[in-house]
Amino acid sequence: MATKRVPVVEGLFSEGADGARLTGSRCATCKTPYFPRSDLCHNPDCTQSAMEDARFGPQGTLWSCAVQNYPPPPPARYDEPYRPYALGVVDLADGLRVVGRMAVDDPKHVKVGARVELVLEPLCREEDGTELITWMFRPV
């Protein structure tokens, strides 16, 4: 039986034939990108909020990275036994600066300035084996 995969939170990302994308909005007037979706443009200099659905990714550059060496407090999720994971801040080519985990085996192998791509990977597993999926970044 195939492993069941469900998003850790609904409505934040999708996977199509062209790969993984973040689901957000962009203001048609001032071009500001938003993730997650926003009903209103928050740019104080924008003359007219005009929000449209937008998809972001997959290409980006790693602005910075760090390691989460200890188990994070709730509401974070992780599998036992805890394994430190790498975190990244990524500047996507389409103008969004976004945080995410790094999809790498060894957190030490992540370098600032690296080109990365968006992927959807399991954050942790439920007791019944269901994988909770979130967005991550993988060096290319």
């Binding site: 910075s64 994070p72 801040v89």
Partner: peptide
């Protein structure tokens, strides 16, 4: 925190690494 897991110290670590 739920989707990424980035408590305060990790946020500071990201700024520091940069």
């Amino acid at each position: 925190q739920r989707c990424v897991g980035m408590p305060g110290p990790a946020f500071w670590a990201l700024l520091c690494r940069q």
